[in-house]
Each structure stands twice: as C-alpha cells, then as structure tokens.
Computed example of a mutant assay.
Amino acid sequence: MSQPATPTLTRDDALADLEAEVGVLIRRVRRVIAERARAVHPELMPSSYLMLGYVRDHGPLRASAMCAVFGIDKGAVSRQVQHLIDLGLVDRSPDPEDGRATLLSVSQEGAERLAAVAAERRELLAERLADWPAEELSDFAASLRRYNDALGIPADR
C-alpha cells in the first residue's frame, strides 16, 4: 500500500509562512516595547523608549541624527527628546564642535533604568528559551541578522 503524497512546499508557501510569522513577531514586539517603556518609567512612551535605547547605544549625538534612523521628521524627534529630558532619562549638553547645537546622552538614571529592564528581559528570555541550546540561539540570531540585512535594515538598528 502506498503512502499518500506529501504536498511539496513551494517558495511562495514558505514566503507566506515567513510573512505570517514576522507579523506575529511584530505584534509581540510592539506589546513588549510598550511593557518595557512602562518598566523604565510609567510615563515613557514606547516610541521614546526606542529612542532612549538608541541614544544609550550611539550617544552622545545630535537629535537630528535620529531622524533618518527612525524615519520621522525633526519636529517629532524634538518632541520625543523633550519627553525624555522631562522624565530625567536624557541629558542635553552643548556640542563642543558647534556651539549652536546640543548633544544628547542618557542620564545616569536612564542608564540604570534601562539596565534593570534589560536584566529582567534576559532573565525572562533565559526562562522561556531554556530548552534552546546556545548554538540554536546563535543560529537564530544569525538568521535574523541575515533577514534584516537582506531587507536593507540599517546595521546600527
């Protein structure tokens, strides 16, 4: 007796599956970013949380440097930056290369709060992915990096 034919997975089917899983990932990431923002400060907006992390990783920097990274105009960046300053998470200082400009850096409080949230996040990931060997985690990260690179997502994320 012969086995029933197994349907062959087409490239279109694989791409549709990838698109669906990325959609799930995006919805979860949005929720997680909102949760992390509240954990850093109850009044922190999710979009400002992403900027705070960027300033931590790339600062000190001018606010205008974030326009291209986040794909938003100077006015929107300025409002987000002011929100971060008002919450005491970012400091502004004169740019030594141009007295008309200012540089942004994460405040001590902002850095401490981000570090605490990151520690909690890694602990949760460690629990949820406890059955994933280190090699599998590394392979998954490499696949995501390759995916992001293929889509032209900037390397500085």
Rank of each mutant, 00 (worst) to 15 (best):
L137A: 14
V22H: 05
A115R: 09
A16G: 09
V90I: 14
R157I: 01
I26Q: 08
D156S: 10
E127I: 02
L144C: 14
A134H: 13
D57N: 06
L129T: 12
T102R: 12
L125H: 15
V24F: 13
S143H: 13
M51K: 12
D17N: 07
V77T: 05
G59S: 02
E112A: 10
A20T: 12
R31K: 13
D156H: 14
A116S: 11
R56Q: 10
V32A: 15
T6K: 12
I72H: 14
L9H: 02
T10G: 08
N148G: 11
G59A: 00
E97H: 12
S2L: 12
L103I: 03
V117C: 08
R30A: 10
A14Y: 05
Y54F: 06
F70V: 00
Y147M: 13
E35G: 09
V24M: 09
R31E: 14
L151A: 05
D73C: 02
Q80R: 15
E97C: 04
R146C: 09
L61Q: 10
G88L: 10
V22S: 07
L52V: 02
R122L: 11
E19M: 12
T102D: 12
E120P: 00
P133Q: 13
H41S: 03
G59D: 02
V81W: 07
T102I: 07
S143T: 12
L61V: 04
H58M: 03
A111T: 06
V55H: 04
L104F: 06
M66Y: 04
Q82S: 07
P42F: 02
Y54M: 01
A68I: 03
R146V: 11
R28K: 15
S48G: 15
M45C: 00
W132H: 14
D57K: 04
D149H: 11
L144S: 08
R11D: 09
C67V: 13
T8L: 14
D98V: 06
A116P: 01
E120R: 15
